[in-house]
Design a protein around this nucleic acid. Structure first.
Lengths: 171, 171
DNA sequence: GGTGAAATTCTGGGCCC
DNA sequence: GGGCCCAGAATTTCACC
């Protein structure tokens, strides 16, 4: 279930997404409130679970993480709950696996992986394929990253005019 | 090229990744330095481009972003630079496209997309397929997200002992 | 939501190793 | 070069209205 967010909340979230260390005062000036009032809203948003955490982005190359890959994992048709558990726990504990999504379609999972080198990726894939839950993996190594916003919110999509809008979408 | 990072730098980066709003003083206590010393290092890391930005993560569901999908984009075999430009610019300007990677293998691009509803996703895919650069798209909608750390660094990979290390890797 | 104030933090300068 | 101490400025985080 979504939570009620007014325009001021959205602006606060947008600013926090762009600069996680912005001060309450600066935020207040941007949204037309005082520092403490903004602070009260932030506390509420944290309490409600809208804000999950504050974090910092690094340049992967500068810290020796040179490889990004996406792995499509096909699982065996017959598997036990324990085997699925084992797979998901492996994913959770492996820091080089950044993301893991259960998807429909021909594959069962999509993984986003970051490693320092192709060798490290190879080793990780070897471990993955050793899991009884895993039947097959298809790996796509990124040659270039065009965009990686990391933004959880696509924020207010302001342009609604030019694009062909779909009528009757009372979501 | 990677940048020289000592253990203290790595600990600072790790802490900043876990909590982007941690104070310099608290950071100093964690790594055995004073606040100002930590601050000097952070300034250096920012200047060197290791630290890219501070940001905030939200619960996608709580802000009405209910759909996550990965789209594999196959491009036409013959295309002009202008057509490729057009595609990449579309990707850059579309906030609902969170990531776009140029990959090898059978596909040409992998996109990570977040939308509020399947209808919005459908509309976005329609626009994608209208681009002359795009030949085919294969979409996998995530039924569940097992892990989405967003962490750029898998940080200290502490376990080096048990795993079969590959000798002769003089990278 | 605002105001005012105390506790904490940021951030720069100067100094030492 | 890197770190420490110190101090003024800014911020966070409380009161209470």
């Amino acid at each position: 279930m979504s939570i009620e967010l007014d325009d001021i909340d959205l602006k606060i979230l947008q600013s926090l997404q762009e600069d996680g260390r912005i001060s309450h005062a600066a935020l207040g000036k941007a949204v037309g409130l005082t520092g403490p009032s903004v602070y009260a809203r932030i506390l509420r948003l944290e309490r409600e679970g809208v804000i999950k955490r504050y974090t910092t982005f690094f340049d992967p190359d500068k810290i020796g993480q040179h490889v990004v890959a996406f792995v499509r994992v096909t699982t065996r048709t017959a598997f036990s709950d324990a085997e699925q558990e084992g797979f998901e726990q492996f994913v959770m504990k492996e820091p080089q696996i950044l993301e893991c999504h259960d998807v429909d379609g021909e594959d069962s999972y999509i993984l986003k992986i970051r490693t320092s080198s192709p060798q490290t990726l190879r080793q990780l894939l070897k471990e993955l394929r050793m899991l009884p839950f895993v039947a097959r993996t298809v790996t796509s190594i990124a040659l270039a990253t065009i965009k990686e916003s990391g933004l959880t919110i696509p924020l207010p999509s302001p342009i609604e005019g030019p694009g062909p809008t779909e009528p009757g979408n009372t979501t």
